[in-house]
Design a protein around this nucleic acid. Sequence first.
DNA 1: ATGTAC
Length: 483
Amino acid sequence: MITKQDFNRLTDYIWELPTTFHAQMTVPVWVFADEDLLEDALGDLSLQQAVNVAQLPGLVGHVAIMPDVHQGYGMPIGGVMVSRLPDGIISPGAVGYDINCGVRVLASTIDYASAQPWLADLASALYRYCPSGVGKGGPLALTPPVMDQVCLEGSGWALEQGYATEEDLARTEEFGCLAGADPQSASSRAKTRGHDQLGTLGAGNHFLEVDVVEQVFDREAAATMGLHQGCLAVQIHCGSRGFGHQICTDYVQQFQLAVLQYGIHLPDRELVCAPLNSPPGEAYLGAMKAAANFAFANRQLLAYQARRSFAEVFGSTSDRSSLRQVYDIAHNMAKLETHIIDGQPQEVCVHRKGATRAFGPGFEGLPTEYRPLGQPVLVPGSMGTESWILLGTAANEPLTYGSTCHGAGRVMSRHQAKRTIRGHQLRQDLEQEGVRVRAGSMAGLAEEAPQAYKDVSRVVETVSRAGIAHRVARLRPVAVIKG
DNA sequence: ATGTAC
């Protein structure tokens, strides 16, 4: 049992659980929250899970917990864990089942007020062209060699096929392609599950949304990003579908043996892991990168379908059909990066699970127009509520190793939400508020009700005040497509 | 999140 009294309050927004809290902890846990959000975090097992994570071997720095934290498989969703190279660990459960799940935002110059009469048609077109639902396949069935090519090239494959522009790739994390992906390390079962899922949305909290840019907080940054107050934007939230899920399943099973082989003590079986420089560790890393590239290509295909839908509704010859990419950034990944550890730059493996990379100004992996601003951070709210566009800060490096929050964060389990919320009623309520809803499953809709989530504005206010992200704009949904 | 169990 963890209580508020167990923490050292480092600042108004940082609470430290020191290593003295538990005999096996090797690094402290820092929770980024105000008093209310800390209370929320103490309401489930998420901080106990953070204490478990802090006992894994080969960690450095501290485990950072974001204000949108909630419990997950082994490691809480909304956590950052840093392991040292070359012999620190990598853990599939600390990446998440949806490898490289992330968000892409596209912006238009279409004014919401004048577009209103066509929004119902737009929602229907998007629902038609972006297949959604559990196990749902899409328009493409990739042959094994093409599947491998997608795993190796990510968005680069989509560019070759005419589904992307150069600017899309420039405005995607890692240009939409991680080097070192190894399709051979992904099982044939994973490839079979994924081969027809490129360009599909999936289910759960995944969605495609049409938003209106409701308020701009940083005028200059918003202008550079193509975000205009009162205009439409598109937000895509999804990941690597059954492909990444199967890879996680496969390696969680394989690593049961690895922990015995390498003598790793585990506080929770769900945290199975392997040394980064071991054969199983390297195999997972290669398979994880393959799934990441698949996810980048998947969001690229969905962006292509969103553009097709806009062109169909607003006319392909008009400027009004153009959707320019703002950015694409993941929130479920392990990345090899250099960070300042104990005052020295050190190469490490940063696991971000339900946490977004948020590098500050000057980062060379950004397109030149974004370099003075910092890296865009895309934070979806819960269904029917606001979403946020943020920027990374220089100040977050010693606090969160270049990371920030990823969303609202659950306060109600899926089961609890399904029990207490009626999908049909929720749909009516949303339509009443002016949000057009296209969903395959009313039970699925209920699981994603706004009541099941924290208030994203409190989460964003916390990361902003803690200095780990900077506010650019707030978006409001006007149409939502779900599985 | 997920062919919501092989």
